[in-house]
Nucleic acid binder design. Sequence first.
DNA 1: AATATAAAAGCACGAACGTTCGTATTCAAT
DNA 2: ATTGAATACGAACGTTCGTGCTTTTATATT
Lengths: 192, 192
Amino acid sequence: MANASATKGERTRAAILDHAVDLASVEGLEGLTIGRLASDLGMSKSGLFRHFGSKQDLQLATVGAARARFVAMVIEPATAAPDGAPRLRAMAEHYLDYLHSFPGGCFWGATASEFDDRPGPVRDAIAASLDAWMAELVRQATAAGIADPDRYAFELYAVVMAANARWRLTGDRRTFDLARAALARLEAELPG
Amino acid sequence: MANASATKGERTRAAILDHAVDLASVEGLEGLTIGRLASDLGMSKSGLFRHFGSKQDLQLATVGAARARFVAMVIEPATAAPDGAPRLRAMAEHYLDYLHSFPGGCFWGATASEFDDRPGPVRDAIAASLDAWMAELVRQATAAGIADPDRYAFELYAVVMAANARWRLTGDRRTFDLARAALARLEAELPG
DNA sequence: AATATAAAAGCACGAACGTTCGTATTCAAT
DNA sequence: ATTGAATACGAACGTTCGTGCTTTTATATT
């Protein structure tokens, strides 16, 4: 939510980006067109465009907004739990719920595969966000006393990513049951 | 490889599709443009277009060619091993190697997330191919005596899919070490 | 209330896309 | 050698995209 004391331009910009994240989860960051975004928000292409100056800037700002949403929905709420195993459990649960905050499934699932072969700042921003998340997972797995934290973080990421992919393609919510069963197997690795 | 006794049109069509699969692994099935495909193959847009009649038909044919490649590289070679655990091991190994047969990473990883929110025959074809693969994994996991074959198939798919995604984004081949470690944990579940 | 500034709109452009159409070339069968 | 079909080409179309320029409207400060 944008700061209420922000200027009108800042509030508009925040509203644009909030919708841009949702739209990109459906259409991708390239399929996210300025015209579509403008008409969805009831404004003109040029009026919206003025806030960014280029489509690439819009894409970069959208990646930033998506990252902010991820932090707010997955990382922040889990800070209540102490480092290590409890934090890992809390993050994994929020991680799965987070997938439902998009109309088109996980923003990162859609955009990472879209930009992995498109060198440039947008790709770099996506990669940096995901690297930061992986690093956080490794940190917590280490704190939890896991012997091979890199492998553990990789598996946890893999399960959630696949849950998103299979769910979006089949429409079958039972996919999440499979994902939870897989996560339970990972939790069983945690000491204590 | 196209049948050598095929007509010229059939050979051209096969060559187009072979390149289309590679190109789609980089640009996606929508980013796969007819002009780019034609110039890569040294032919005219209209000459290429004639073989399909619409872009959607080209996309559908490309999905079919990708599926044929998957069968030839992952499923076929593993049929030497008997059903159950040996077959699962063989398929998993070929599955990882298969990722390197594309210039832009796994065709399915790129196209599934691209089309999961685009209803239509292309989406249906992609979903059907992946469903068939999941069904094969479940079948072999069942034959191997796994208690929850759906969960097992899901995890195996998740590991390879995540290996592809992380590898494409980081460029780090050590990702495959993590994937192999994860696959080893799955193999450890197999009886015998 | 007047005025300066920020925000949004209107309009038009050049490029790229899928697609169509008419024509040229290749190839096989007579 | 002649014909007819299969294959390919080149130019053009209508549309959509990102972007720039100019004008109008809304906001905020004195």
